[in-house]
Amino acid sequence: MKAAGSDGVLRSLELGRGNGASRIEQNTKSDQPLTSLLRMADERLMEVRDVYKYFGGLPALNGVSFSVRRGEILAIIGPNGAGKTTLFNVISGVFQPTKGKVIFEGKDITRLPPYKRAKLGIARTFQIPRPFAEMTVLDNVVVGMLANGGGSVSVARMKALEILEELGLRDKAGTEVRKLNVQEKKSVELARALAMEPKVLLLDEYMSGLNTGEVERAVEELKRINKERGITIVWIEHILRAVMKLAERVIVLNFGQIIAEGKPSEVANSASVIEAYLGRGMAH
């Protein structure tokens, strides 16, 4: 299984060099000039400044800095153990960084507890989903709304049903989440995150385990969330095919450091990235 995985990586890298890259270039060209101008002028939504995180002396993050523009879709890729999930934990407040800062909308949030960051507009999902397993799908989403102010239970319930409709979970509304499969649990987490009406959505391996057709659908879903709701997406993903299609910018993390950053096409061709993935393939 692991060998097949690294094969997949290689293939997707090749894909990036070929068709995928050119399609993304086309996309960029077809953007209206005004929007791209606005985008360039747009302020930074979030900034990670020189973040270090050590676990018992071992560095998981080793001086990571980058910023996230409002409205963009930023993918974070890298081999297992590169520090991607740790980065999300630092941004969402589950961990405090050993050193460094997290800035959100110009405000230093490094020391804020997770729930305050949520109220500022940071939502996330987990690599291994953490839904409220003994609650119904609907209640999972409703609680995401109620936790952030959001009016009465009945109003929240109506809004939650709309979100479920949009994500194709409407007919599961009354099911207890523990009875769902992993993919459905991930969708419930996404729905719960959307119910928070966040400014930025941190998705941790949202697509792993999906087949080709499902990946296509998930890509469309995220594109829609980004465009229609105007939610910035920062997205950890192993499925490079999807990254090539959806991301506007890619950051490559390896051994807790950013080793490449740029458009998907550029990153896919970068020697250090290929090495990082090849190295991982050889190690197994």
Partner: peptide
């Protein structure tokens, strides 16, 4: 609902704003 969420999953509860 909020208590039930906390009982189910504390980390997730905190992360969604509880």
């Amino acid at each position: 609902l909020i208590m039930e969420a906390v009982r189910n999953e504390e980390v997730a509860s905190e992360v969604i704003g509880i």
